[in-house]
Design a binder for these strands. Structure first.
Length: 445
RNA sequence: CGGGGCGUGGCGCAGCUUGGUAGCGCGACGGUUUUGGGUACCGUAGGUCGUAGGUUCGAAUCCUAUCGCCCCGACCA
């Protein structure tokens, strides 16, 4: 993309409504625009990141054998009356009435709807196990939206639902989700720690929240410092291997790690003092096993091999996709702006032409631009008639992980400059080598 | 939902106490000048002062109502 033809409305000054750093930077970098309290338009740069996160979530869900579908944002209240949650949910649920005076709602989640789909099409153990998911906008009418997209009212969420014949199978689904979530976050360049949590209005017995450590997090967390040393890394995962999934789950959840909701001071004290950590975290996902909580009242039954009809065992799992954009920035920024991890960056590299209009510099930039694109990469070429300082400031603000700086001075020596946004370190090298280096960095991401 | 604060050009703000018909910085646009970290100068455009009533010869300014937004708390993915 050439910046001169893009839509990137960056701000030099901080909008007064934004208090926390991710919100400020998202506004300044032209990623979002607030349309109402807790409701945002995603401008092109922000939309790119959002789409990228969605893509990673889709890939990792399908790698784990989960099947995508798409349910609507608006739901009929009937299903919710059936489950009993229409009254239980409270004013957080946005209730709407259509022209025929029918009760509708903007879905805060989809347990009822997915259970309805399941019960009308699935009736046999032979169709199990089954995990369906979608990535869709949700609405929760928060009393007090804040922190930009991290606690909006409208938010994009991946929510998935597993259906299993037995509790044992459903617990495998739980473990499988835990593992696939770990992998999803790691691909995004985030460390999200699974912590024992409270089940809230979803209900259920087992639940873990995934928290990204950040000073601005909304939850207080307590953990053994050793949990931050565990990584999934490149290990091979067979999502059908129950023992392996359980093993990974145990590895990641054996050490003490809890939010304030489930914190147990007594257990915490048993950790050696030098490893006790009290910090703050941003919740970016949660998994639940809730058994037959919905299948029983809603009559989602399956026939067992013996011909008996039993309620299906279920769980649900969510990843806050739009809030992850904020969480990523909270975890990756400095005083100049955002620093995107390579896995989620909106553009792979920025090209800064220090002297627009200089024949050599223009040609070199065009060459780099074409070469990067030929490698399947997506560069952002700042071809504006701006001074160097303005171009650097923009690049730093929007946080592309790599920058190639091209100027007549360097070109005389046959080099351009490759700079890491994260470390600030620069290297002078021939343009072809810079392209090769960037291609190498992104190989496999 | 309790407490606090704020609505004045795209963004940040002043003006309001002591009513007289709107101003500054940034940004945008046009020039000149610059050109390796937000260059300097000149000029131009852009505002029903959130909205609706009221007081007044006259309201951004005073009064009433209302809407919106932000912060702290409770709540929450």
């Amino acid at each position: 993309m050439r910046l001169s033809r893009y839509f990137l409305p960056v701000l030099k000054e901080n909008p007064s409504e934004a208090q926390i750093v991710s919100h400020r930077l998202m506004l300044r970098a032209g990623m979002i625009r607030q349309q109402a309290a807790g409701i945002y338009s995603w401008l092109p740069l922000g939309y790119r990141v959002l789409r990228r996160l969605e893509q990673i979530v889709h890939e990792e869900q399908q790698r784990a054998g989960h099947i995508p579908l798409l349910m609507p944002t608006l739901q009929s209240a009937d299903l919710w009356k059936e489950s009993g949650r229409y009254d239980a949910y409270g004013p957080e649920m946005l209730r709407i009435r259509d022209r025929h005076d029918r009760d509708m709602l903007y879905g805060p989640t989809n347990e009822e709807m997915i259970t309805d789909i399941f019960r009308s099409h699935v009736g046999s153990y032979k169709d199990l196990p089954l995990t369906l998911y979608h990535i869709q906008w949700k609405f929760r009418d928060e009393v007090r939206p804040r922190f930009g997209v991290m606690r909006g009212r409208e938010f994009l969420m991946k929510d998935g639902y597993n259906f299993d014949l037995t509790k044992e199978d459903a617990l495998h689904a739980y473990n499988r989700h835990l593992v696939s979530y770990l992998r999803t976050y790691e691909r995004m360049g985030l460390q999200a720690i699974p912590m024992r949590a409270d089940s809230g209005p979803i209900g259920g017995d087992d639940t873990h929240e995934f928290l990204v450590l950040a000073d601005t997090g909304e939850s207080e967390v307590f953990y053994d410092s050793r949990v931050t040393d565990i990584r999934l890394g490149a290990r091979d995962i067979d999502y059908d291997d129950k023992d392996q999934c359980r093993g990974v789950m145990e590895e990641f959840t054996a050490l003490y790690a809890r939010t304030d909701e489930t914190h147990d001071a007594g257990l915490f004290e048993q950790i050696p003092e030098d490893r006790r950590r009290v910090a703050r975290g941003i919740e970016v996902g949660q998994i639940f096993y809730f058994g037959t909580k919905y299948s029983e009242p809603m009559g989602a039954l399956v026939a067992t091999p013996d011909g008996e009809r039993v309620p299906v065992h279920m769980g649900s799992h969510g990843i806050g996709v739009s809030r992850l954009v904020g969480a990523l920035i909270e975890a990756n920024h400095d005083d100049k702006g955002i620093i995107w991890p390579e896995g989620v960056t909106p553009f792979h590299a920025g090209i800064v032409n220090l002297k627009q209009g200089d024949a050599d510099a223009d040609a070199a930039c065009e060459g780099l631009y074409a070469a990067l694109r030929a490698r399947g990469l997506d560069p952002l070429y700042d071809d504006r008639e701006e001074r160097a300082g303005a171009k650097f400031a923009t690049m730093d603000l929007i946080g592309l992980p790599w920058r190639i700086t091209v100027g007549p001075r360097g070109l005389k020596a046959g080099v351009v400059e490759l700079t890491s946004r994260r470390t600030g370190e620069s290297e002078e090298l021939a343009p072809e080598l810079a392209v090769a280096r960037i291609a190498e960095i992104y190989a496999g991401l």
